[in-house]
């Protein structure tokens, strides 16, 4: 097993005059939980969107399980096992929670069996009791969980979680951390963007740091916490004050 599950080489994305990502290279192995951190505007969400195919990269290559998926449409990439949740949560507000999740299951099966699997996914994230509620009426933490369930319903190999723990209290956050660990036991590989350092340090095997669209550090949590460039990116230089 030398081929990494997700490998990214020299990925760049430019929006007009803005270089959102420049020459990002990294690899994620099967079963890993990887964190992606960086200051606001560092390009974390852009990186996720580019990986799943919502943005076409300006340069570089994305490979999934050795297969080049660069420039493919998002639904093709999803069918190949890579999907993400949305930071700003984009549920289908007019549909029920169950229907939201069910649509993810249609990649692989018909409506009836997708419904059954969607129920399993809702149980997995602990919200099967709100299956029949309208997605538009949920609280933010509930919506974030529906996002996760919907992504799980596509049966991904790699799941990109974009700030699913925002607005959670400590107890809820611990539940989500437990869930992510459980998902790994099921064989899922997870990449997490998160601002809560405690959460990300406790759950991740490895952390990537992105700043101004560039990858500035890569290593185990303890190493990252002491990394001078990371400290600088987050807290500014000592003499800046």
């Amino acid at each position: 097993m030398n081929t990494p599950l997700l490998s990214v080489e020299g990925l760049s994305k430019r929006f007009g005059g803005l270089q959102a990502l420049s020459d990002v290279t990294f690899a994620v192995n099967t079963g890993e939980i990887v964190g992606l951190i960086g200051p606001n505007g560092a390009g974390k969400s852009t990186l996720f969107s580019t990986l799943v195919g919502l943005h076409r990269p300006s340069a570089g290559k994305v490979a999934l399980n050795g297969r080049d998926v660069t420039g493919l449409r998002p639904h093709v990439i999803a069918a190949n096992g890579l999907t993400k949740t949305f930071q700003n949560v984009s549920l289908f507000a007019g549909s029920s929670v169950l229907d939201n999740v069910l649509i993810g299951g249609l990649v692989h099966s018909r409506v009836a069996s997708a419904r059954g699997f969607a129920m399993d996914c809702l149980k997995r994230v602990g919200i099967s009791d709100i299956a029949q509620r309208s997605a538009g009426s949920l609280s933010f933490p509930e919506r974030a969980r529906v996002e996760v369930a919907r992504a799980l319903c596509t049966r991904p190999k790699v799941l990109l979680l974009d700030e699913v723990m925002a607005a959670l209290n400590t107890a809820e956050m611990d539940e989500v951390i437990g869930l992510i660990r459980d998902l790994r036991k099921d064989g899922l590989t997870v990449v997490i963007v998160e601002h809560h350092m405690r959460a990300i340090m406790s759950v991740c095997d490895r952390i990537f740091v992105l700043n101004f669209g560039q990858l500035i550090a890569d290593g185990p949590p303890a190493h990252i916490a002491r990394h001078p460039e990371v400290v600088e990116a987050y807290l500014g230089r000592e003499h800046d004050v």
Binding site: A79, F92, D99
Partner: peptide, 21 residues
């Protein structure tokens, strides 16, 4: 189901595997 997904969130629909086109 897919049409409703396309109507309510085309990007989200694509990312969870709906060929919106």
């Amino acid at each position: 189901y897919r049409l409703r997904a396309v109507k309510e969130g085309p990007d989200a629909a694509e990312v969870i595997g709906v060929n919106t086109t």
